[in-house]
Design a protein around this nucleic acid. Structure first.
Lengths: 332, 332
DNA sequence: GAAAATCCGGAACACGTTTTCCTGACTGAA
DNA sequence: TTCAGTCAGGAAAACGTGTTCCGGATTTTC
C-alpha cells in the first residue's frame, strides 16, 4: 500500500476539529438525529474548513448500496449506443449515481468478465444495450436489469425500445398527406429486424400506394444510389422513396440529383434515424425519423432507478419517435 | 435499508462452509499467507459452491484504493471522445479497473459536480478529455490526472495528444512524392487550433508547392464544395487539395466530380481524421490521416496507471498519426 | 423542590475485506 | 529432553461511514 502524502480528511478529523464525536459529526452533516442547530453549524464549518468530502466507499458499505450502475454495451462505437449512454448518464447523475462503462465488443467472454466485475462492485443495477434492435438473451445476475434499444427475449424482463413500426408509419403517412401515391421502399438487409419492422410498417401504411416490394440491400449510400438506378430502370413511375436509413436516403438523393430528377418536386425522399451528419449534409436535407435515443436512455435509467427503489415495471416499453420534416419532402 | 432477499454470500459464509476462519479464507482465495494446499483447495471449493464473488467495496476500503478511474469529457457525443473512451476502457479493464463516465456537456457547474462526486468515490485517477485540441485549464484534485486529446495548460501535468502537425505534414509529403507541385489547403476556422496547426504544417512542408494562402471556413462539406468554386474561379491552377478534415474533403470531391474534374487524375485530394462515414463513403474514398485515437486512449490509461502506481511521467506526449492512402490520391 | 419529560451527544456496532500479529503444534538438532 | 525454528491457521484491528441505543443534562410540571 502506497501512502499518498497528506491523505484526505476523514469524518473523524472533522469531528475532532468541531470538538464532537464522529457520530455527531455524521448526524450534523446528514441532517439526521437531534442536534442543536449551533452544533450542526459548527460541524459544517469544520467540514468546510478541512475541505471534507465523505468517502462514499464507507457509505456504500454501511448502506448496502453502491450508488453505481453498470452499462453494458455490445458496441459503444455504434452511433445508437452513444446517445443512449448519454441520456442514461444524465438521468443517473441527477440521482447522485455514477455510471460505469463496459464495452464488450460483442465478445461473450468479455461480457462474462464485465458481469463478474459489476457484481463484485455490488452495482445497484445494470443497463444492457446493443447496436441492433434484435432481442438478445437476458443476462443472469441477482440485480435489477433494464434492456435498452434491444429488448430481452424474456418478456418479463424490463426493456425499453424505440417504436420502429410507428416511426416508419409516420413517414409514410407524411408522404401520403403530401399527395404522393406511388411510394417505393428502400431499406437494409432482410436479416435485420429493424429493416423488417420498418418495411412491414411501410407496406401496411402505404397499402396500394406502395410500388413494388420493399427493396433490401445494405445500410449504405452506395445501395441507395444503386436502388435508384434499379427503380428508374423499371417501367413503374414513383413519386416518393421512403428509405430505411438516412444513409440510404442520402445515397438516393445524390443519385436522383445526378440523374437530373428534382427532390422533392419529382420525387420526395424520407430517411430514418436523424443522423445529423447524413440528414443535414444531404442535398436536400432529409425528412426523417428521430428515434429520440437520448430520451430512451433517460427513461431506461429512470426505470432502473424505480426498480432499485423496489418498484420494478416488468415488460416492454415502446417509446414514440418523432417525425422531422425537412426539404427532401417539403421543398424550400 | 432494503433487505434484498437472499443476499450474496460473504467471505464469512465461505469460511464457515470450509470450516476455517475468515482470515484463512481470505488468504486461501488471494494466494497469500502460508496455508496447506489442501486447505486452500477446500476454501476454493466452498467459494465455488456458494458462487462467492468478493465485495470490492470491502476490498476498496481496506486497500485504500477503489480500483476505479473517472473519465471526464466535455462532450462525449463528439466523434473524437468516443474512440478515446473505448481505448481507455480497454486498457483499464485489463487491469481490473472500472471506468466511470462523466459528461459535463461543457458546463462548468456540471464539471464541478462530477469532480466532487469522483473525489468522494476516492477514484484512483482521472482522465480528462475534450472535443477540441485547444489546451484547457487543469482541474484541481488531489488525485493523478491525465489529459487526453486536449492538453492541460500546465506543462507539468501529464497530457497525451495526437501529433496534428506531423499528420498534416505526412499528407503533404505524400502529395509531393506523387509529383504534385501546386497544392491548395482548405481547412476549418482560423480560431480552431487544429486548423491552425494543420495549416502551419502544410505551409511549412509544401513550401513553394503551396498555392495561395490556407483557406479557412467551417468544418463542413458545404465549405468544401464552396472552396472548390473559389479555387477554380481564380486563375491559378492546382493539382492537389489538402483538406483539414474528411468532411471538407468529401465536399471537395463531390464538387470536383460535379464540375467534371477527375480525382485524382486532375486533382488529388486528401482529408484528415479517417472518419469512416466520410472517408469511405466519399467518391473516391479518401486518402487521409488516422489520428489513432483509440491507441491514444490506451496510452492515456497506461500513463494514468503508472502514475497511480507511483511513477508519474509529467509532460506532453505527442503520439504519431498514420497516413491512410486510398483512391483520392492513388486512383484505382 | 422533586419527579417527569425532553433534548443532546457519545459509545458501540455493523458493513466486508485485508493484514498484522500471535499462538500452538510439529520438526529437527544439540 | 530441551531449545530453536518452521509451519498452519486464528484473533483482532484497520479501513470510513451510518445507525441504534443509552445515559446525562436541561427544562418542564406538579
Amino acid at each position: 500500500m502506497v501512502s499518498r502524502g497528506p491523505s484526505l480528511p476523514r469524518i473523524t478529523d472533522v469531528a475532532a476539529l468541531a470538538g464532537v464525536s464522529t457520530s455527531t459529526a455524521s448526524k450534523a452533516l446528514n441532517d439526521t438525529g437531534q442536534l442543536r442547530e449551533e452544533t450542526r453549524e459548527r460541524v459544517r464549518r469544520a467540514a468546510e474548513q478541512l475541505g471534507f468530502t465523505p468517502d462514499s466507499r464507507g457509505r456504500a458499505l454501511s448502506s448496502g448500496r453502491s450508488y453505481t450502475v453498470g452499462l453494458i454495451t455490445t458496441d459503444s462505437s455504434g452511433r445508437f449506443s452513444i446517445p443512449i449512454m448519454l441520456g442514461a448518464e444524465d438521468a443517473l447523475s441527477a440521482g447522485e449515481m455514477a455510471l460505469v462503462l463496459c464495452d464488450t465488443r460483442d465478445d461473450p467472454l468479455r461480457e462474462q468478465h464485465y458481469l463478474r466485475s459489476l457484481v463484485s462492485r455490488r452495482v445497484d443495477g445494470i443497463i444492457v444495450t446493443g447496436r441492433r434492435t434484435e432481442p438478445r438473451e437476458p443476462i443472469d445476475v441477482p440485480i435489477p436489469v433494464v434492456y435498452a434499444f434491444s429488448a430481452s427475449t424474456d418478456p418479463d424482463d424490463m426493456s425499453v425500445i424505440a417504436d420502429d413500426h410507428g416511426g416508419a408509419a409516420s413517414t409514410v403517412r407524411h408522404l401520403l398527406s403530401l399527395g404522393r401515391r406511388r411510394i417505393a421502399h428502400v431499406t437494409g438487409p432482410a436479416s435485420h429486424r429493424s429493416a423488417q419492422t420498418r418495411a412491414a410498417a411501410t407496406v401496411e401504411t402505404a397499402a396500394d400506394a406502395l410500388v413494388g416490394e420493399p427493396m433490401h440491400g445494405e445500410w449504405s449510400e452506395r445501395w441507395g444510389r444503386h436502388a435508384v438506378d434499379l427503380l428508374l430502370r423499371s417501367e413503374s413511375e414513383v413519386d416518393a422513396i421512403s428509405c430505411g436509413s438516412d444513409q440510404i436516403a442520402r445515397g438516393v438523393c445524390d443519385r436522383l440529383r445526378e440523374l437530373g430528377r428534382s427532390v422533392p418536386d419529382d420525387i420526395a425522399v424520407t430517411g430514418c434515424d436523424n443522423w445529423s451528419v447524413m440528414a443535414l449534409a444531404s442535398r436536400p436535407p432529409l425528412t426523417t425519423v428521430d428515434l429520440e435515443l437520448e430520451e430512451l436512455g433517460r427513461r431506461t435509467a429512470q426505470l432502473l432507478l424505480s426498480a432499485i427503489a423496489g418498484t420494478p415495471s416488468p415488460g416492454l416499453l415502446e417509446l414514440p419517435t418523432r417525425l422531422i420534416t425537412r426539404e427532401s419532402t417539403l421543398g424550400t
